[in-house]
Amino acid sequence: MEWVTDLLTMMISAGTPLLLATLGEIYAERSGILNLGVEGMMAVGAVTAFGITLVTGNPLLGFLLATLTGCLLACVHAFLSISIRSNQVISGLALSMLGLGISSLAGRRLIGTPLPVTIRKIPVPLLSDIPVIGAFFNQDPVTYTSYVLVVLLWFILFKTKLGVIIRACGENPQAVHAAGIDVYLIRYLCTLIGGALAGLGGAYLSVVYTPTWIEGMTAGQGWIAIALVIFAVWNPIYATVGAYLFGGIRILQYRLQPLGISVPLLKTLPYVCTIVVLVVASSGKFRKRIGAPAALTIPFEK
């Protein structure tokens, strides 16, 4: 049983950046905004957190600023797609390019530098000793935070009025507007939440998981997160399943290496799996009923 617990422990850690980014994108899409810029926001979050932690020695400050820069980038998308009603696909692509470009500019002197601090795992007493389940309680503080976020974001989305408003914005913004609620405000809010969480996910990647800065280290995780939103049928709870599954695929890559399978071929695994997951999710029989928010990518005009 021990190896299962160990494997699960690693899967959770490897899946955490994906989980954070997916949670954020769920909020953006639930409000009707498709943000394809996750990859860029993650990259900028990663480089910011790494740089700040390196300079100040304070990872908390690094995480905070990564979250903020994620927000800042998301602002660009929010302005383009909400305020001036641009095509969300193009705007998201622009954001991804911009984010990757900024990360490579900002990180040009950080490559190969080790961090002065490491974020350690803090096992929860007693709970972490339980077989299998214990894997969830032998993690670092950021991962614990992500559990709280999953529950909190789920609760807000499905059990509060704010959640109803967010979902209604993604389904029929006209009705929200007619109810006297500012659709733009809600959509801005959700897009910014998406940016903040993508930034945090990137920060986890560079400060906790790897921990180092390599140009292009996000390696498509932002895009995988967007696919996971569909897989999770826009529900924060289900996002954990997809994220940890892909965390597992990442672990699998390293586990299969000693068997003599070529490394570049193993690297294709998460990308192939993403396509498979998307195909499965889009061929579901009841796609229409549990499908994408009806107003996703449609600009709202007062």
């Binding site: 109803v164 979902r167 209604a168 389904e171 029929n172 006209q174 009705a175 009806a294």
Partner: peptide, 8 residues
């Protein structure tokens, strides 16, 4: 035409 949110 009712402006309800059909998926809620």
């Amino acid at each position: 035409f009712p402006e309800t949110v059909d998926n809620l």
